[in-house]
């Protein structure tokens, strides 16, 4: 399980490898908040390599989204697999995030 942060123009792209769960959510949160502190405002979390997100992982996404919005920025999500897509739809979390099928689409017009 690891998080890789890369810059694509002015967007910070975060790759989540494996799972986003109670055991590693704080690490993701800290990494994103560090970038926010440095001045970045556009964030994209790419779940192409993510199998599972537990409820505390979802909580961190919402909390990050709120914090980024408070700083005038935006958090987008991309590449949710079918299970994750269903989870977001069933819990109505899809109404809280801008979710794209691919990284490219997410980056369009960011």
């Amino acid at each position: 399980m690891s998080f890789t942060l890369k810059k694509n123009g002015d967007v910070v792209v975060v790759d989540v490898e494996g799972q986003l769960i109670v055991g590693n959510r704080q690490e993701l949160k800290q990494k994103v908040l560090d970038e926010l502190e440095k001045g970045d405002r556009k964030f994209l979390i790419d779940f192409a390599q993510t199998g599972y997100i537990d409820s505390s992982g979802l909580g961190v996404l919402v909390s990050l989204s709120k914090k980024i919005r408070e700083h005038g920025g935006e958090l987008r999500l991309a590449n949710l697999n079918d299970d994750l897509q269903t989870l977001f739809e069933l819990t109505k979390l899809d109404t809280l995030f801008q979710i794209a099928d691919t990284r490219e689409r997410a980056l369009e017009g960011f």
Partner: peptide, 24 residues
Amino acid sequence: AGHPHVFCCRPTGEPERLGALDPP
């Protein structure tokens, strides 16, 4: 509010999901 697993099971037909109407 965001609870995914609630169903109304009727004597015939598929269980109807009473899906989330709002986020958690």
